[in-house]
Simulated scan of single mutants.
Amino acid sequence: MNLIKIVKFDIVNIIRNPTLVIANTIFPLILIGVIGFITKGGYGSLSINSYDYYGVTLMIFTAIMLAMTATNTFMEEKVKKGNTRIIYAPVSKTEIYLSKLIATYIVGTVCYSFIILLAQYILNMNFGGENVLYVVLLINVLSLFGCCLGTMFCSIFKKEQLANSIMQIPILIFVFLGGSFFPVENLGKLITKISVISPIRWITECVFKIIYDNDFSMYMSTLSVILAFCIVCIIITHITFKPEEYV
């Protein structure tokens, strides 16, 4: 019951922050629109255009960037001051960090699910047609990984700015190897082989196989890999998080 109350409190804090709301709703649509427009001349195929490609890859990029929202929810200075009393309440340390993670995940998945369905059925982007819900689930699982990653870095480095600064390094590597802004195959065979370490690469390849080939051969393995990453992050968070350092 305490966990549910804290989660509700954290969700309200996120919704009250206009920067976080815009970053997870309007910004992805603007990003897709701008990059899709700029690159529309480079896609001559009738089966895929720039908006289809970047609609998928930039939603995947946005999902992993939910890590930034998680760090803000966890350790933004105003939030920390308001949540100081939680440290002295009869709650476990697990409830403290899980509440931040869960609240961020709920807000993120609601926003991203809405954007994908809007893009599919109103803006005529291709997110899988009748298979769109499978794509939504993949994006939501990646969002969970983003939340776990952000929470883990906050727990390790104790401060939001430091956590965000260092966390950008693995995220940029994942994004670069994942083909979020250009097909990674363009960089050669070596980079393509190395790219398997990126969870974004797994998600991107799996999503495109579902959309254009109706191929679900990677689906369960991709979900399993991303969930394994999530579990590792949560274990590290549990080991490193100390409530007394939260204030």
Rank of each mutant, 00 (worst) to 15 (best):
I4E: 07
K5I: 04
F9V: 04
D10S: 07
R16G: 14
I22W: 10
N24T: 14
I26P: 04
I26E: 08
I32D: 02
G36T: 10
F37S: 13
T39N: 12
G44K: 13
L58F: 11
M59C: 07
A67R: 04
N72G: 08
N72M: 13
E76K: 11
E77M: 06
K81L: 10
N83D: 09
Y88V: 12
T94A: 07
T104S: 15
T104R: 03
V107Q: 03
V107G: 00
G108K: 02
V110Q: 04
F114C: 10
L117H: 02
A119M: 14
G128D: 09
G128P: 05
G128E: 10
G129S: 10
N131H: 14
Y134M: 14
Y134W: 13
I139F: 01
I139W: 01
L142D: 05
S143P: 02
G146V: 02
L149G: 01
T151I: 07
F157V: 00
A163T: 01
I171R: 00
I173N: 10
G179N: 12
F182H: 07
V184H: 06
N186C: 08
L187F: 15
L187N: 09
L187P: 06
I194A: 10
V196N: 09
P199D: 10
T204V: 13
C206N: 13
I211W: 12
Y212P: 03
F216I: 03
S217Y: 06
S217E: 09
M218F: 13
S224I: 06
S224W: 09
V225M: 14
I226D: 06
F229P: 02
C233Y: 00
I234R: 05
H238W: 12
P243M: 11
E245I: 00
E245K: 14
Y246N: 02
